[in-house]
């Protein structure tokens, strides 16, 4: 796919091939109100089918594997995979116990879901960048962006869900009056009520935005670096020069892959921990 796009682009213009290659790989499969030229969403009712498909596929995978492990638990002689799942459960449970004040049965399952889902969605980034678009193009799908977390819609949707939960628990724990007081008298006291309202509103809205942008930014940049490394082989390997460029591409790709493995785990972990922390702050009386 990459080669075809490149050759077409190279045919049309002198040096636009690399730009087109990158743009093509960063374009979602949009249906509904989409711009026919750029294939970007141009209205409210536009869906990124690839993001939805891979997001739900991974969610279904987690549910299926969870169900399989759950139905074949062996307390006396746990299998290797059961041990692995128990390790993750124990890890998330420890985090929740350490970070979350009080008790809420919703938090640990929520944290576990976020961690696993975000991690696996991020993990799609490690699949070779040309592989899935190539397979998709053979069955007539023109655009495919396989990593759901490189789509801001996914990360914002998750962080807004967390935000709604934070608001819900804030009102539940502090009471409607207590919640309003936070807006009125924080952070400058009772003499600056209008400024306080604006500032607290900005602060509260910044939480989900920063949560979403951090994940999106890291994964989008990671994907872009993979594309750039792929371009080393795609554009520069001609004849004997391949002996130089190909090993370089392999080394760079492997290096970035290993580093990126750390990044995707860390980002999934940070999203989970910050969710717990924000919900924990909603459950405490003092702001």
């Amino acid at each position: 796919m990459g080669d075809r796009v490149l050759s077409e682009a190279a045919h049309n213009s002198g040096g636009g091939g690399t730009v087109e290659y990158i743009q093509h790989h960063l374009t979602n499969l949009c249906v509904g109100d989409c711009d026919p030229v750029t294939h970007q969403a141009s209205g409210f009712w536009s869906l990124h089918l690839d993001t939805l498909f891979f997001g739900y596929l991974i969610a279904a995978l987690i549910v299926f594997v969870g169900w399989r492990v759950g139905s074949s638990l062996n307390p006396d002689k746990p299998s290797g995979f059961q041990n692995f799942v128990e390790m993750i459960l124990d890890f998330v449970s420890t985090q929740v116990k350490d970070t979350f004040p009080g008790h809420n049965p919703l938090i640990a399952p929520l944290a576990l879901t976020i961690f696993l889902w975000v991690f696996l969605m991020n993990f799609m980034d490690l699949i070779p960048v040309d592989l899935l678009p190539l397979i998709a193009s053979t069955i007539g799908i023109p655009y495919l962006k396989a990593v759901p977390t490189t789509d801001l819609n996914t990360t914002l949707a998750m962080s807004l869900t967390v935000f709604v939960l934070v608001v819900f628990y804030s009102i539940k724990v502090k009471g409607p009056v207590g919640y309003l007081k936070m807006f009125l008298f924080h952070p400058f006291g009772k003499f600056f009520v209008p400024v306080n309202i604006v500032m607290t509103t900005i602060e509260e809205l910044a939480k989900p935005l920063s949560l979403a942008l951090r994940l999106f930014g890291n994964l989008f940049a990671g994907e872009l670096v993979f594309l750039l490394i792929a371009l080393i082989g795609g554009t520069l390997t001609v004849g004997a020069a391949a002996f130089f460029w190909f090993p370089l591409q392999v080394v760079l790709d492997l290096g970035w892959l290993i580093f990126h493995l750390l990044v995707i785990t860390l980002q999934a972990f940070i999203f989970m921990v910050l969710t717990i922390v924000y919900l924990g702050m909603a459950h405490t009386e003092e702001h």
Binding site: T99, E203, A206, S210, L211, L213, R214, I270, L274, V277
Partner: peptide
């Protein structure tokens, strides 16, 4: 762990 988000929180605000 909140400190991880200080930079992005500032930008987001």
């Amino acid at each position: 762990w909140l400190l991880v988000g200080v930079g992005s929180h500032l930008a987001a605000m």
